[in-house]
Computed example of a mutant assay.
Amino acid sequence: MTEKVTLLVPRLLQPLVGNSSELHLDVGDGATVAQLLDAIAAEYPVFGRRVRDETGALRRFVNIYLDGEDLRRLDGLNARVAAGQELMVIQSVAGG
């Protein structure tokens, strides 16, 4: 039985995590999204800064989905993630 979740990384952010399109994170008995992002930021600090601001909140143009459900409609960064679930990061690109 797996105790990992999969984080799908958008192409724009892949260079910040060793060019990986997926990260597999150990959650044991469960973790919050914030705890998972903290763990990723510890290994990939630039990724952490691109996803969250200095207060720890998601940046305005970053959306995270847990099994297809917008994190903002759940419990935000406090949403619990269990083994086998999938997180997807979407970073909006603005331009003119």
Rank of each mutant, 00 (worst) to 15 (best):
A39G: 11
A82G: 05
R11K: 13
V89R: 01
A31W: 01
E3P: 00
V33L: 08
E3R: 10
D38E: 14
G28W: 05
L77W: 00
A94H: 10
R80F: 00
S21T: 03
L58Y: 01
A94R: 14
A82E: 11
R73H: 11
P10N: 06
V81Y: 02
N78Y: 00
A42I: 07
Y44N: 08
V93R: 13
N19M: 03
L12I: 15
E54V: 12
K4H: 14
L37M: 13
R59D: 05
A83N: 04
E22V: 05
L12S: 15
R72S: 08
A83D: 02
K4A: 08
V9T: 09
G30V: 14
A79M: 02
L71D: 02
R72K: 14
V27W: 06
A41M: 06
Q35S: 09
E54P: 00
D38P: 15
V27R: 01
Y44I: 06
Y44M: 01
P45L: 11
K4Q: 15
I90K: 07
P10C: 09
V62A: 00
R11F: 09
I64E: 01
V46T: 15
D26N: 14
V51E: 04
I90Q: 09
V9S: 06
G95F: 10
A57K: 14
I64N: 05
R49S: 14
G76Q: 08
N78I: 00
D67K: 02
V51F: 02
L7M: 15
G96D: 10
V27M: 03
N19W: 10
V81K: 00
L87A: 10
L8S: 12
S21P: 06
G30N: 11
R11N: 09
